[in-house]
Design a protein around this nucleic acid. Structure first.
Lengths: 340, 340
DNA sequence: ATTCCTTGTGTAACATGTTACACATTTTTG
DNA sequence: CAAAAATGTGTAACATGTTACACAAGGAAT
């Protein structure tokens, strides 16, 4: 790898001059500039970011930690983050962490070691981490800002971007109730704030519409497709059988629909299904899946925006918490053909 | 950010000793080790990768350039790459480049600037780039190895991982012919080696099965969903109307199926549809889409493997070219119900 | 007792870039 | 024309690690 010294030597100038040419700063004569430029081309020289960041103490690197790159929700969020950061000259260091304290901590350390300028942490739920503060403390103590997508109780002033889960679940449940269903099974996710909030929406919609809640209708899943499938098998055994199902995320809803397909139960005529997240698969599957729309892309952008404003110190107050609102996308899976 | 000097001072030893503790190299007394460890904990110290890589000239960073993170094909490939690299201590720098010379070149430069240890370039087709060699030359000239997924003519000794497109297209076409279709429309992709090869498979299957080729049955798309939709509209206008369609990738096949759905043409009874890539969506859509299985995950792993073997110099011969074989996943979209 | 390992630690050079400061020219101003 | 300002360039210090080499001290071998 060629260094600035080699360029300087070839161009017959000092390293300071080369540096000035590259960074377009200070005075450089046209003649010197040309000679330097030529040397750079011949040597295919690129400044070493590592060395650069030693002096500037900025790497233009942002660490992004997501639980699962394959999950369409995080994928689209990442896209929002990337789009916002890209033209500001930042580049992402992606890492996948599963949902596990240990690994998360390691990746944060790895990011710090790479002296990222900031860190974005995404999770389905941070409450599961024993001590989230312990994970982010090393970053904060070293003046690297962190923003989160999700929920945490933290003693630090952290910016968070969230989503109105209560309202979203409320909308989906209300819609099902309005479609005439009075017995709506719920496929829940793992114990977490998200699950709690979505449950609360489900509950409140029942109360507001004067429909009694039946705890027996709640089946626990784990946010993954297979658990949706299994949950639906249990629901099919129920007597009387519910006429609608609300799953706490789309992936489980799709698993549920597959179970219904395998058992030749028609959707939505025999059982209506609604999901949450509005991932792209909702429009692919037939019948198309009714789902709560989460502005994933915008959430990603907002995360990036929060982070950048912290980094360039245009904001440094208490932790901000932006909550994005909900909308329901009504599709075939909840609307009987004769009602269309 | 704390540095090794601060740790050394706090522990009352020299920086060399701290370095030895961190890298577990050389002799360090237990007493010193403990003092250093404690200082590290108190300061939340992490070695600066940038400074580290100055001396070791290794960053443990691998640059990965994909045209579109949202495309399931590249996503799964990335997963394969990431899984292989992760436990070897490497971390990925993802970048998305669209399919454009300029941007690609920039990102490679950016990677070099970050002194990545190696670069993986993915593309649907490299032949579209005027001068691929110009893009990778800066890397190679600086001793940074590059591996590619796809096709290129290069004067350099580059490892490539490809896929047997001819055979894949052959299998899909043959399958359709065997199902009794003699008029098979082809939804082609953009001009590229991939398209050419997939066309060749389509052609050869016809010849081997003594079915005459009809150029009028070929409709051009661009590998994207919408173009598949449009192409199918044209196919529906044909007279006589073909009874089967083979799309050069799944995304277009799915677009085509949506067009058929909108026009109430039943799949596979009136028109059979087959795609290429076997993305996850094939099993989501109804009827499930018959598709050529590309071992995307394995391709990703192989890319990473090739790169690493170059990097640690366990291989340094001429450019290798591994071609993965094909298999057809026959699903509902090509098999009429009474034949099942 | 003398020589030779083994263990433990520090000093200083080096990796690559940025930049404050010094110095030399030119050009402009009064 | 002298003084002041603008332009152009180099030297050296610094950012943060790694590591070769020097030096000490304690035992073991001769």
């Amino acid at each position: 790898m060629s260094s600035i010294y080699q360029v300087a030597e070839m161009a017959g100038v000092s390293v300071a001059t080369v540096s000035r040419v590259i960074n377009q700063r200070g005075y450089v004569s046209e003649k010197s500039r040309l000679k330097v430029q030529e040397a750079i081309n011949i040597l295919h020289y690129t400044p070493n970011q590592a060395a650069q960041s030693l002096t500037t103490s900025s790497t233009k690197l942002i660490g992004l930690l997501v639980p699962d790159i394959n999950n369409p929700v995080f994928l689209e969020q990442s896209k929002g983050i990337n789009d916002y950061l890209k033209d500001k000259g930042y580049i992402l260091m992606y890492a996948e962490s599963g949902e596990d304290d240990e690994e998360m901590s390691n990746m944060v350390r790895r990011f710090l070691s790479n002296r990222v300028d900031g860190i974005i942490l995404c999770s389905r739920d941070f409450t599961q981490f024993g001590d989230m503060d312990a994970i982010i403390e090393p970053a904060l103590k070293n003046n690297v800002h962190v923003v989160l997508n999700g929920y945490v109780d933290s003693k630090f002033e952290i910016d968070r971007v969230g989503f109105d889960n209560v309202r979203g679940a409320y909308l989906a449940t209300e819609h099902l109730l309005k479609m005439g269903h009075s017995s709506i099974a719920l496929i829940a996710g793992t114990d977490s704030t998200i699950s709690e909030e979505r449950y609360r929406g489900y509950r409140e919609a029942h109360i507001d519409n004067h429909v009694s809640l039946n705890p027996a209708l709640v089946v626990k899943g784990d946010f993954r497709q297979h658990s949706g499938y299994e949950a639906m098998l249990k629901i099919l055994q129920m007597n009387p059988r519910p006429t609608a199902v609300f799953a706490m995320n789309d992936v489980m809803a799709i698993g549920a629909m597959m179970a219904l397909e395998d058992h030749k139960v028609s959707v939505p005529d025999e059982i209506a299904v609604a999901g949450f997240d509005d991932i792209i698969w909702c429009s692919l599957i037939r019948p198309r899946l009714t789902s709560v729309v989460q502005p994933k892309y915008e959430i990603g952008k907002k995360l990036a925006e929060f982070l950048l404003s912290r980094m360039n110190e245009s904001y440094s107050g208490p932790g901000r918490h932006e909550i994005f609102g909900s909308r329901l996308a009504v599709r075939q899976s909840t609307v009987k053909s004769e009602q269309q």
